[in-house]
Write a protein that binds this DNA or RNA. Sequence first.
DNA 1: GTATAAAGGATTGTATGCAATTTCGCCACA
DNA 2: TGTGGCGAAATTGCATACAATCCTTTATAC
Lengths: 237, 237
Amino acid sequence: MKAADKAKHRTDMISSALRSAILERVLMPGMKLPEDSLGERFGVSRTLIRQSLERLAAEGLIELRRNKGAMVAKPSLEEARDLFELRTQIEDLVISRVIKNMSPEILGELEAHLAKEVEAENASEPISIRLATEFHILLARLSGSPVLLRYVEEIGYRCGLTLSLYARPHSTDCGIQEHRQIIDALAKGDEDTARKLMRHHLTAVADRALFTTEEGGPLLYLDALEPYARKVRDGGA
Amino acid sequence: MKAADKAKHRTDMISSALRSAILERVLMPGMKLPEDSLGERFGVSRTLIRQSLERLAAEGLIELRRNKGAMVAKPSLEEARDLFELRTQIEDLVISRVIKNMSPEILGELEAHLAKEVEAENASEPISIRLATEFHILLARLSGSPVLLRYVEEIGYRCGLTLSLYARPHSTDCGIQEHRQIIDALAKGDEDTARKLMRHHLTAVADRALFTTEEGGPLLYLDALEPYARKVRDGGA
DNA sequence: GTATAAAGGATTGTATGCAATTTCGCCACA
DNA sequence: TGTGGCGAAATTGCATACAATCCTTTATAC
């Protein structure tokens, strides 16, 4: 057996790559995802692509219509609202758990992530949605509950997709301040305040996303997947 | 094109069959699920079986270990607790939505389902866990939110699995009374009471499940899948 | 007798091939 | 010019074939 047995395998890597591409607006809602092209791009056969697409469809990031292939999901505004509302309920639990587990190490991890967010904001990089989502996922991980992690991840990604669809750029800027406050409340062990802050934060993020930009038409294709594909092709080793 | 285009296809049917088999304890936690045997049993190739297994793994009903195949999931007690806690949070939202949508038709559907539960109890059939779960799923459907439906279904099934693992038989009997009370509160439009009843109901169901029966060993095989497989083989028409 | 190792069988991982369905272009015709 | 249908190309659905991995059994050495 090799040193690292946890080598994620190709289907996982492809799924991750596609998920990132979707969340970073490289693959935009409505885009078609033909199995052949993707397979060629990632250097694998349609079998693995199909697996990845099925997985992403189960997560709600793409839509899979019989005999018609896959396309990046285009969630409606109602769906977006439902997702954020659901997320609020779930993250209530996360807050409780994290407070119970609170420790200097945990606080350190949170601070470290916040630092990354600040850094990205200063560089005005366009990945802030992704980092903001990952803050919530980090909290879920620190809750110690695999169940919570699983659902916060999935719903967080779906919310990220709706944000990339409906929110105008830079609408997440002030989110960092709110993350800061949440961390502070957690550090003080003030569960009630932390929960209120989290609820407020999430509804604020959702509200800022009501800009129904109604962008261009249903799109096609892309070569911009190259950077994502490269990692997969070069082998996960 | 045929009259009904919505014909669920074979992967869906196989997934449903396996899901039912798991929830009805025909496939018990820990059982191995070899692709070849299942394929032969259902009359399809491993391709479709793999798809179904992946789907069920995404739902948390089976575990999928690399190169070692699938087995029915054996959720831990902590996981069970987390699932019920999460479910409580989600069904809070369901209650609110259903109250908003309340109408004679909806009430009728709920009463009809309750009647089925009573009937099954009188016949002392062993499918009460399934019917009880379906009550909650019906509520989620009546909430009008596909998002809520999706997650209540999934988490409901996972809770059903933990019940089938840990709960002793007949522990769901008194659940029917609680369903009755919830329907009444909903009919009266009393959201607060409905929510409290639902929370109490779910924690009660979870608490009754603390009997860690620790049944036999890791099991193998089965021909009892035959009734499930037949429906799939005979074609979904 | 136990332990280790190697070989064989069984099971999963991935690619490829063929059938079925959809999509799109083309031509006929009103 | 617009519309309907027919056919070819493209795409997905499913099965099968082969490669890789794991498990079991047997053989051999200590």
